[in-house]
Design a protein around this nucleic acid. Sequence first.
DNA 1: GCTTACCGTAAGTCAACACTTACGTTAGGT
DNA 2: ACCTAACGTAAGTGTTGACTTACGGTAAGC
Lengths: 106, 106
Amino acid sequence: MAYGNALTALADPTRRRIFERLRKGPRPVGKLAAGLPVSRPAVSQHLKVLKEARLVHDEREGARHVYSIDPKGLGQLRAWLDQFWDSALDAFRAEVEKTAGKENSK
Amino acid sequence: MAYGNALTALADPTRRRIFERLRKGPRPVGKLAAGLPVSRPAVSQHLKVLKEARLVHDEREGARHVYSIDPKGLGQLRAWLDQFWDSALDAFRAEVEKTAGKENSK
DNA sequence: GCTTACCGTAAGTCAACACTTACGTTAGGT
DNA sequence: ACCTAACGTAAGTGTTGACTTACGGTAAGC
C-alpha cells in the first residue's frame, strides 16, 4: 500500500507545484521555494512528505540539497492505477453495448 | 486541472476502499457501506466527492442508487501521471549513465 | 394509505495538516 | 575565527475535512 502515501502526497496543490517543477529537472530547495506563495521551511516539509512517498529523492551538493523525481513511487502509483484502468475499460465496453442494445430496441 | 480533484479524492483511505470495491463491479450504496468501519451517510458523502472527481457515476434503479467506476477521471489522472513517468524515465537513464561513469573512473 | 427500505443532506464535533516564526546545523567564503 | 548562505526541525496556530446523529425525500410492498 505504498501508493497510499503517494496519493496523499500529490493531493496537496502546493506539493503538486513542487513536484511539477521537478519535472523540468533537479532543483535545490531554494530554487523550488522561489516563486511559491509559501515560505521555504514549508517547502522543506513538503519535500519530506514527497520523499517518504518515494516520489522524490535528495542528494547533497555541499550546502545545497538537490531534489529530483524518484521513479519508484511513480511506478507503484501507476501500477495501482492501471488495475482500475483495465476494469474501467471493460465496464465502459459493457456500458456501450448495453446502451446500444437499448437504442436498437426502440 | 481536473486531476487535482481525482487525487484529493483518492487520497482518503476510506474513499480508496470504496473505489476498490467498485472495481469488482457496480454496487448500490448499502452494499458499499456494509463491512466498512464508517456509517452509511459517510459513504454517501465519499461517493459525492468521487462523483465530482469523475471517478464514479451513479444510476438510479428505483430506490437504489447504483454506483460504478467512471473512466473519465481515471483517464485524466493517468494522462497527467504519464507526463511525469516519461521524464522520470529519462532522469533515471541519465542517473544510471552518470553512476556508470563514476564506476568506470575508479 | 401506511410502513419500510434505501438514500442524500444539514448541522455539529474533533483531529489532521498545511502553514508560520524561531532556532540549530553544516558548508563555503574572506 | 567569523559571517553568510542554504537547509532541516521544533513548536505553535488556524483551517480544512472526515466523521457522527438527526432529518427529509422517494420508491416498493402489503
